[in-house]
């Protein structure tokens, strides 16, 4: 482990950044999924259920 500020530590500079780290480093991708997931599972699903409540006979 390096003591230098912003050092590259043990990783050689040319080693590619792992996929998940790239995902976590991308705030706009996270923003997109953070809005899509609750919109689909909570809002759209919830509204669909209410709309499909039958009318009392």
């Amino acid at each position: 482990m390096s003591d230098e500020a912003q050092g590259d530590g043990a990783n050689p500079v040319d080693e590619p950044i792992p996929f998940m780290q790239q995902v976590l480093d991308n705030p706009f991708l996270l923003l997109f999924i953070g809005i899509t997931v609750p919109t689909v599972f909570y809002l759209i699903w919830g509204v669909m259920e209410i709309v499909s409540i039958p009318i009392a006979d």
């Binding site: 482990m1 390096s2 500020a5 912003q6 050092g7 590259d8 530590g9 043990a10 990783n11 500079v13 080693e15 950044i17 792992p18 998940m20 780290q21």
Partner: peptide, 12 residues
Amino acid sequence: IFPPAQRIWWKE
């Protein structure tokens, strides 16, 4: 409060 020291922290 500082950026991670290692460029690649995913493999720690």
